[in-house]
Design a protein around this nucleic acid. Structure first.
Length: 614
RNA sequence: GCGCCUGUAGCUCAACCGGAUAGAGCAACGGCCUUCUAAGCCGUCGGUUGCAGGUUCGAGUCCUGCCAGGCGCGCCA
C-alpha cells in the first residue's frame, strides 16, 4: 500500500486533527529572549511594591508589530494584567515601563493603543544583526545546541504507475521542509515509502513475464518506458483472461512468500519504475536519491511480528475473522468502535500493518525524535489511528513527535481536480514539459537576443521553479488551483518575480565588478527603504524555525516575496552604484549583498534554482 | 448518521499564541525608463472575513448552532 490509493478508484486521504504539531525546539528570537526577562523583572518590581497581586505573573508574550509606527516588538502584558491589577491598561503600562530595566538593544519604549507596550530596537542593534548575518555562512540563524533526528516521509509514489500530478505536493513540500531542517542543523532522514508491494503487482508481474516471453528484453524496455500504458495493458489482460488473472494472483502469493523467481521479476520492474521517479526528482531538483527509498516491501518480514507484538500487549481482538485493534477514540458509522485491521481474515497484511512496522523502525532503528508525514489530507484518520496505536503499543516513545503534514488537492482552473482533456490523470512529466515550454516562449519573447542554450537554462529554472513555487507559496492545508498563466506571471508572489529580483542584485555586483562576499564599510540606514529591507532581512532565522516547526514552506515563500519586494523598492529609491557618497555606496552594497544571499539561500531551501541573469 | 478540512476583495492567495486601521498580486484606472535589468517601481479603486449568537479590554482567528463545498468512516493503498 502506499501513500496513495491504487487503481482506478480515487485516492483517499485523511487529514489530521488537532493533536499535532508539538513545536519542537523553542522559538529562537534573540530580541524576544532579551525583552522577556526585562518585562518579567518589571513585573516582579510591581509585585514587590504591591501594585500587582502576587499571583498576577503569567507568560509574557512578545510579538513583532505589523506596523512600523508601533515599533519593532510589542507586548500585551498590561492588557492582560489590567483586570487582576484593578487598573486601567495604560496606567499599568506606564508603571511597567517605569520599572523596566534599560537595555542597549532598546532605543525607545512607548505605550500605544489600548495599552500595548511598544519596543523600538536600537539602530546599532539592528546593524549588529546585519553584520553577523553577513559574516555567517548560515546568515546568523540560531543552530540548535541539540540537533534533532527528524524522519520525513514524503513523495512515496506508487511504483505500479507513473508519477502524476497528485505526487507533486508531497514531493515538493516535503523536500522544502527537509532542506530547511537540514539548514537549521538537524539530522534529517528521508524516507520514500514507495508503494511497491500492493496486490496489483501480481498483475504487473504476470504481464511482465508474458511480455518478456513474447517480445524479448529490447521490446520490453521500450514498453516499460511508458508505465501508464504498461499498467493499462496489464489491467486489460487481467480483465479479459481468467488464466492471466489466476496467474497474477498466484504470483502475488509467491512474491509475498519470498519466491526467488518472483522477487527477481519484481525487482526488475521496480528498477525501471524507480528510475522513472528518479528522473523526475532530478528534473525537479528534489533531493531524494535511490538510497532514500524504503518502500512497503521493506517491512514485509516484520509484519507478522508487529501483529504478534500487538497481541502480546493484549491489543488485538478478532472480529469477523480479521485481527483488529479497537481504540476508544475512533468510532465507525454506527458509533461503534472502529477497528484498525492489521491482518485480514485471509491472513494478509495491510497498509496499516506496514505503517506500524515503519513507525517502529523509524523510532527504534532510526532513532527519530520527530517523524513528519507529508501525505494527502485524506489519510488523516489513518494517521491518527497509526500514531495513537504506535504509542499505545510502545512502538514509538511517548515524547516522539508524530505529525501528519496533510495537504489538499491540486485542482485545475475550474476548481475541480486537475485532469487531462479526456478526464485522465495528468502525468507529472507532461505538466513539467508544458511548464518549461511555456516558460521558454515567455523568456524568448522577453529576451530574443539570448542564444538557445541560455534560453533553455532560464526556461528550465523559471518553468520548473514556477510549477514548484505555485505549490510552495500556498498554505498546504487547503486545495489549490493550479494555473499556468498565473504561476508564470512575472508579477505577484511567483517564482519569476523572486528569480528576477535576485538577478537584479547579481547584476549590480557584476556592473560594479565587485564580489558579493567582499563588501566593506558600515551599515548606514538612513532611508526608509533601507530600514524596511534591513528589518526584514534579519528575520530569516525565525521564519525558517516556523517552517521547520509547522511544515509550512509557504511561510518562507511569503518572506522571500517580501524581501524581494522591499529590495525592488530600495533599488528604485536608493541608487547604489551611482551614489556619490562612498560610505553610502558601501552600505548599500552590503545591504544588497545580504539581500542576495538571503534570497539565494531561501530559494534554494525551497528547491528553486536562482540564476545570475535572466 | 458520525467525523475531519475548507469558506477572507470580481479572481488567485496572506494574516505568527486572540491584538492595534484584515494585507498582497491579478483585473480596472492613473503616473515613472538620457542613470545599477521597466520581467521593475509609485498611486487610485475594491471587504458586513458564509450566516447567527456567545466568550473577551480586543475575534477572520476561540466556543455553540446553522448554510455551502470537499473528503473520510471494517478486511484497497
Amino acid at each position: 500500500m502506499l501513500r496513495e490509493a491504487c487503481c482506478e478508484s480515487s485516492p483517499f486521504p485523511v487529514q489530521s486533527p488537532a493533536s499535532q504539531p508539538a513545536q519542537s525546539p523553542p522559538q529562537k528570537n534573540v530580541m524576544k529572549e532579551r525583552l522577556i526577562p526585562l518585562i518579567e523583572s518589571a513585573l516582579d518590581t510591581l509585585i514587590d511594591d504591591g501594585t500587582l497581586p502576587a499571583d498576577a505573573k503569567r507568560p509574557v508574550q512578545i510579538d513583532r508589530t505589523k506596523d512600523k509606527s508601533h515599533g519593532d516588538f510589542a507586548t500585551n502584558i498590561a492588557l492582560m494584567l489590567a483586570k487582576p491589577a484593578g487598573m486601567k491598561p495604560r496606567d499599568l503600562a506606564e508603571k511597567l515601563i517605569a520599572a523596566l530595566p534599560s537595555d542597549s538593544a532598546v532605543a525607545k519604549v512607548d505605550i500605544a493603543g489600548p495599552g500595548f507596550i511598544n519596543f523600538f530596537q536600537a539602530d546599532d542593534w539592528l546593524t549588529g544583526l546585519l553584520e553577523s548575518a553577513l559574516a555567517d555562512d548560515f546568515l546568523g540563524i540560531d543552530r540548535p545546541e541539540q540537533p534533532q533526528t527528524v524522519v520525513v516521509d514524503y513523495s512515496s509514489p506508487n511504483l505500479a504507475k507513473e508519477m502524476h500530478v497528485g505526487h507533486l505536493r508531497s514531493t515538493i513540500i516535503g523536500d522544502a521542509v527537509v532542506r530547511t531542517l537540514e539548514f537549521l542543523g538537524h539530522t534529517v532522514i528521508r524516507q520514500n515509502h514507495v508503494g511497491d508491494w500492493g496486490t496489483q503487482f501480481g498483475m504487473l508481474l504476470a504481464y511482465l513475464e508474458e511480455q518478456k516471453a513474447e517480445e524479448g528484453e529490447r521490446e520490453l524496455s521500450r514498453e516499460l518506458a511508458n508505465l501508464e500504458t504498461f499498467y493499462r495493458a496489464a489491467k486489460q489482460r487481467f480483465d479479459e483472461s481468467d488464466t492471466f488473472a489466476d496467474r497474477a494472483r498466484a504470483l502475488v502469493v509467491k512474491l509475498q512468500s519470498g519466491d526467488d523467481y518472483c522477487l527477481n521479476l519484481w525487482a526488475e520492474f521496480n528498477q525501471v519504475s524507480l528510475s522513472h521517479c528518479q528522473a523526475i526528482y532530478d528534473r525537479l531538483g528534489v533531493s531524494l536519491t535511490p538510497s532514500d527509498v524504503r518502500g512497503e516491501s521493506a517491512y514485509n518480514d516484520d509484519l507478522a511480528q508487529v501483529v504478534a507484538d500487538l497481541d502480546s500487549k493484549g491489543l488485538i481482538s478478532e472480529s469477523q475473522g480479521a485481527q483488529c485493534v479497537f481504540m476508544d477514540a475512533f468510532k465507525n458509522k454506527e458509533g461503534e468502535p472502529l477497528p484498525v485491521i492489521v491482518r485480514k481474515a485471509g491472513g494478509g497484511y495491510l497498509y496499516a500493518t506496514s505503517d506500524l512496522a515503519a513507525l517502529r523502525y523509524r523510532a527504534g532503528t532510526l532513532q527519530a525524535d520527530r517523524m513528519l508525514y507529508f501525505v494527502d489530507q485524506r489519510q488523516a484518520l489513518h494517521f491518527q489511528q497509526m500514531f495513537t496505536l504506535a504509542k499505545l503499543a510502545g512502538f514509538v516513545p511517548e515524547q516522539t513527535e508524530l505529525a501528519h503534514m496533510g495537504f489538499g488537492t491540486m485542482n485545475g482552473p475550474d476548481g475541480r481536480p486537475f485532469k487531462t482533456r479526456d478526464g485522465g490523470t495528468v502525468k507529472l512529466v507532461d505538466l513539467l514539459d508544458e511548464a518549461e515550454q511555456r516558460a521558454f516562449a515567455l523568456v524568448q519573447d522577453k529576451n530574443p537576443q539570448l542564444d538557445e542554450t541560455e534560453l533553455r537554462t532560464i526556461a528550465r529554472s523559471v518553468g520548473i521553479g514556477a510549477a514548484k513555487y505555485a505549490d510552495l507559496s500556498k498554505n498546504r492545508n487547503s486545495d489549490y488551483i493550479f494555473n499556468f498563466e498565473q504561476m508564470l506571471s512575472f508579477e505577484g508572489n511567483t517564482a519569476p518575480y523572486l528569480l528576477y529580483a535576485y538577478t537584479r542584485v547579481a547584476s549590480v555586483f557584476r556592473k560594479a565588478e565587485r564580489d558579493m562576499n567582499s563588501v566593506n564599510g558600515d551599515f548606514l540606514l538612513n532611508e526608509e527603504a533601507e530600514q524596511a529591507l534591513a528589518a526584514r532581512l534579519v528575520q530569516f532565522g525565525e521564519v525558517l524555525q516556523n517552517v521547520a516547526n509547522k511544515g509550512q514552506p509557504h511561510l518562507l515563500s511569503t518572506y522571500l516575496y517580501d524581501v524581494a519586494g522591499l529590495f525592488s523598492s530600495f533599488y528604485e529609491h536608493c541608487p547604489i552604484l551611482s551614489s556619490e557618497d562612498e560610505s553610502i555606496r558601501n552600505s548599500r552594497l552590503k545591504l544588497a549583498a545580504l539581500t542576495a544571499r538571503t534570497l539565494k539561500h531561501g530559494m534554494e531551501l525551497l528547491g528553486l534554482s536562482p540564476l545570475e541573469r535572466m
